[in-house]
Nucleic acid binder design. Sequence first.
RNA 1: CGCGGGGUGGAGCAGCCCGGUAGCUCGCAAGGCUCAUAACCUUGAGGUCGUAGGUUCAAAUCCUGCCCCCGCAACCA
Length: 488
Amino acid sequence: MSKFYVTTPIYYVNDAPHIGHAYTTILADVLARFHRNAGDQVFFLTGLDEHGQKVMQAAQKRGMTPQAHCDDLAPRFTNLWTKLDIRYDDFVRTTEERHKRVVRDVLQRVFDAGDIYLNEYEGLYSVAEERFITQTEFDSGQFRDVKMLKEKNYFFKMSKYQKQLVDYIETHDDFILPIHRRNEILGFLKQPLGDLCISRPKSRMDWGIEIPFDKDYVTYVWFDALINYISIPGYLYDDAKFKQWWPADVHLIGKDILTTHSVYWTTMLFSLGLPQPKTIFAHGWWLIGDSKMSKSLGNVVNPLDLIEQHGIDAVRYYLMREMVLGSDANFTPESFIKCYNSDLANDFGNLLNRVSGLIGKNHGGIIPTLGTLTPAEEDIKARADALPKQVNAAITAFKVQEAVVAAIEFVRVLNKYMEVQAPWKLAKTDMPGAERVLATAASGLRLSATLLLPVMPDKCAQVLDILGSPDGKIKLHPPLFPRIEVET
RNA sequence: CGCGGGGUGGAGCAGCCCGGUAGCUCGCAAGGCUCAUAACCUUGAGGUCGUAGGUUCAAAUCCUGCCCCCGCAACCA
């Protein structure tokens, strides 16, 4: 038995959650559930990033104080997580004192260690990005709201750790995944790394955590936010807890925030003398019908709509089944319906109906016991024995799609087995044979449901309840995944 | 030389890091079954894995060149 500490990014509270937030969080939940089922001690942390300029602006626009704005939006996230069946172990809000005190302490420590210095800087500042940009970046034309700004600020000596970071990445294969992201970062690190501006003068922006050694400044939102990964497990305040959980096993992130995690965060940890997380995993984006999801295009998918129509488990299944971790995936209602009908209705749900129906009709509703195996059952059993290992290996390698596919393929094997053995025929001539087949199918279905439990907690629990145990009585049930009929 | 992603049977994809007879789902055709959510099962048609070279006994997979497609104001996993 080991421990598993998984994090999601803490989401920036300037708007309502969308499918992207939901995806990352569901992914974390699925991994967490797999590890819990494997007997691991699990700590699953998610939460909200509530400081920074954009939050302040969003609040101003609504005529609210930043805190009131955050307090208003926070339940929209937590309520969604409830609806999505997310079982996190802790939920951090960066405006909480238990987080802020650690950020202040970290700033002080890094400062005392000589890794923070004050410097006057004049340069191009992107209001939108909340940071100074280089001339090259400005020339790219990708930044708006750029103005010349001259001010004193505190800088973190990121450059000091560049070599150490490169060495670390090169000697730790699983540190940044997938591999192409690792190469991307190594490529980025071939250029000299600058230092990171980590302060904002209150005169310009005061919605943040005050820097302990200079009350005229608050700290940069990323320097604040990243620390949640250690503040919540008790860094500096609960040694036992911190020792138990840190380093994290995986920081799940979207590919857009790879640099902040693999460069900013890692060098911060070096400065603190803390071990690095085992893995930083950057997944891809959900594209909506081949284009990026964006609010201005109006194609942002609200996960709640889908859930209301088809149930949370189907949505969780689709998201895990469809995206190869690390690549982008395409979200369309059509592909959702295909995936649902094919895997869940026709294969999984239908197999349950076949098995439970036959047991009900021919065997008095009592789930038969196995009896003597024939080669056909030996074959099923061999596959069944191999399956959990296969699924666990896939999960360990962050190949969630593979794990899900392996489980559903086994369901197809069972459907085929049923077809070949035809227990509905055997019932007329060979009752023990019919029982043997149905017992095998029921047991296989229980295994599939057990393996898919992390992905579809509710539906799989229902399957396990319906099929109970050998010798038990099946429960009557409506179709678990009614087919979605598409009107043409 | 801006950055990144991608080009695999009709559609959507996996495989590529760790070379070894090209796989899945959907669709299509024929057949089977009839317990089941018009679901299930079998067989078949259909691909020189963008392209030109290279390495190798062997390349979708590694290397090099080229072509084509997509995304890149803000929001944002």
